[in-house]
Amino acid sequence: MTVQTELANVAPSKLSVNAITKRFRTRGTEVHALDRVSLDIAEGEFVCLLGPSGCGKSTLLNIVAGLDSADEGTIFTDGKLIDGPGRDRMVMFQESALFPWLDVIDNVMFGLKLKPGLTNPERREVAHFYLKLVGLEKFMRANIHELSGGMKQRVALARALAPNPRVLLMDEPFAALDALTREQLYGDLQRIQQQRQKTIVFVTHNVREAVCLGDRVVLFSPHPGRIQEQFKITLPRPRDINSVDLAEHASEITKALKGHMKSDTEVAE
């Protein structure tokens, strides 16, 4: 395998989630995290899972990642059943989860080293390519603690992209960043998505973020976790999170979100 073929875009996957149910038992009480959730995601689609905390959106992401298993239901990528983590699906976490004992480029190379068919100089070249893509090639040899929060998430993005996955799973990756850095990363992520063509599942509780990034926004409701409503976002890209059009879409979704939370409390009363 050469660096060129390794860097070539792989076809993004189709994901199909079929009637996933997941319950957690903690201290005697049972939490119904997901209740027969079904969802089809097309090749190269950017889907945002949106909802209040406890609606099971992160749980679903972890099941797609293969880190957790569902109690019932199945998930297929391109018709293949998911039964564990795989290099075709890379994950980006809320905390960067970068390894502090490695420098920036060795972090990006961690997953690459587990990928057979490449020599080490080739892996280095690949890692370099992705660091350049996220604009951090100058920080190749930096230690993790020397980076700002935004830079850490860029490295984490490079690390997730490096093994050339078909699916990118992102669990509130920008939630801990300041607004300005976040806006920059929205731009970067859209640019990279245009270039690398991944299927992306992005978990967030930020409505505007979801509208800014997603081709589709899937609204979850909690107790038990279910899909409440879906919104197709057809705004042209690249999108600016501060644009008026985007704000209109966002307010529509926010209304739906609030409406549901209200009816939820009424039921509780």
Binding site: A65, G66, L67, P85, G86, R87, R89, M90, V91, F93, E95, A97, F99, P100, W101, L102, F110, G111, L114, K115, R159, P163
Partner: peptide, 27 residues
């Protein structure tokens, strides 16, 4: 625990996780 989870998503298993993640992390 996130270190081991992250390593798992990148294809690290068993002995590799212990030698390349757990050991250096507890250095």
């Amino acid at each position: 625990p996130i270190y081991a989870r992250a390593a798992r998503t990148m294809g690290s298993r068993g002995l590799h996780t212990w030698v390349k993640v757990m050991l250096p992390a507890s250095l």
